[in-house]
Amino acid sequence: PEDLERKVRELQKNGVSPEQIEKILRRDGVDEREVQELVKKVS
């Protein structure tokens, strides 16, 4: 979803590592495939 992507970009802009971003997304209940997609987009 659009807002998730925005969140991921925000986190990355704040210097959060892709690994941390993955953890955060998983903790928020984002589905694994979605997590991978989002992280791939920003890394």
Rank of each mutant, 00 (worst) to 15 (best):
G29P: 01
E34T: 15
Q20V: 10
R6W: 11
K13H: 07
V8F: 06
E37I: 09
D28F: 14
G29Q: 02
Q20T: 08
R6E: 10
Q12T: 12
E2F: 11
V39L: 15
Q20C: 13
E32D: 07
G15Q: 02
P18E: 05
L38I: 13
P1K: 14
E37L: 09
E32H: 04
S43T: 14
I21M: 04
R6S: 11
N14G: 07
E19Y: 06
G29A: 02
L4N: 05
Q20S: 06
S17D: 06
Q36M: 11
E5P: 03
D28A: 13
E5I: 12
L11S: 01
E22V: 15
L25A: 00
P18W: 15
V30D: 01
G29H: 03
L38K: 01
N14Q: 14
E5G: 04
V16Q: 04
R33V: 09
E19P: 03
K41F: 08
R33L: 10
V35R: 02
R6F: 09
E10L: 10
Q36R: 12
E22I: 15
E2G: 13
S43F: 15
E19C: 07
V16S: 06
V35E: 01
G15N: 04
I21Q: 00
E19F: 05
L38C: 05
R27T: 09
G29K: 02
N14E: 09
V42F: 13
E32S: 06
V16P: 00
R9S: 05
G15M: 03
E32G: 05
N14D: 07
E37D: 08
R33M: 11
D3R: 05
V16Y: 15
P1N: 13
V8L: 04
N14R: 13
N14I: 10
I21R: 00
L38Y: 07
V35P: 01
K41Y: 09
R26N: 03
E37H: 07
D31G: 10
L4P: 03
V16I: 09
I21Y: 00
D28M: 15
L38N: 02
I24R: 02
V42S: 05
E10P: 00
L38F: 05
E5Y: 13
E34D: 10
D3Q: 08
S43H: 11
L25F: 02
G29W: 02
E22M: 15
E2S: 14
V35A: 12
P1W: 15
S17R: 05
R27L: 13
Q12K: 12
I21K: 00
V30Q: 03
E32L: 07
V30W: 14
D3P: 05
L11K: 00
L4Y: 06
Q20A: 09
R26L: 14
V16L: 14
E10A: 08
Q20W: 08
R26S: 06
R6T: 11
D28G: 06
Q12P: 00
E19S: 11
K40T: 08
K40F: 12
S17Q: 06
V30E: 03
P1A: 12
E32W: 10
L25V: 01
E32T: 04
I24M: 09
K23T: 11
V8P: 00
E2M: 12
E32F: 06
V39D: 02
R26W: 04
E34H: 11
K41Q: 08
S17M: 04
V35M: 05
V39F: 10
R33E: 10
S17W: 02
L4F: 04
D31V: 04
D3L: 07
R9H: 06
E37M: 09
K13L: 10
E37F: 07
E2R: 12
R6Y: 09
R6G: 08
E19K: 08
K7F: 14
E22S: 08
D3T: 08
K7W: 15
V39R: 02
V30Y: 15
E10R: 10
R33H: 09
K40W: 14
Q12S: 13
K23E: 15
K41M: 13
E5H: 07
E10M: 10
R33A: 13
I21A: 01
Q36G: 04
G29C: 07
V35C: 03
E19M: 07
K40M: 10
Q36K: 11
Q12I: 15
V30F: 14
E37P: 01
K41W: 12
L25H: 00
R26H: 04
E37Y: 09
K7G: 01
E10H: 08
D3H: 07
V39G: 01
L11I: 01
E37K: 11
Q12D: 03
S17T: 12
Q20I: 09
P1F: 14
V42N: 05
I21H: 00
K23W: 12
V30I: 10
S17A: 09
R6V: 07
V39T: 04
V35Y: 07
Q36H: 09
L25E: 00
I24Y: 03
G29N: 04
L4S: 03
V39I: 15
G15T: 00
Q20K: 05
I24S: 02
D3E: 11
S43C: 14
Q12H: 15
P18G: 04
G15E: 01
V8N: 00
I24Q: 04
R33P: 03
E19T: 06
I21V: 03
I24H: 02
K41S: 08
I24V: 04
P1T: 13
D31T: 11
E22F: 12
R27Q: 12
P18M: 15
P1L: 13
V39A: 03
E2H: 11
E34Q: 13
K7Y: 15
V30S: 02
L4G: 01
R27D: 15
Q36A: 11
I21F: 01
S17I: 03
V35G: 02
I24L: 07
E34M: 15
V8S: 01
L38R: 01
E22D: 02
V39P: 01
P18R: 14
E19A: 10
D31C: 11
N14H: 10
I24P: 00
V42C: 09
V16M: 14
S17K: 06
P1R: 15
V35F: 07
V16H: 13
K13V: 06
Q20R: 05
L11C: 04
D31Q: 06
D31L: 06
E37T: 05
K13P: 00
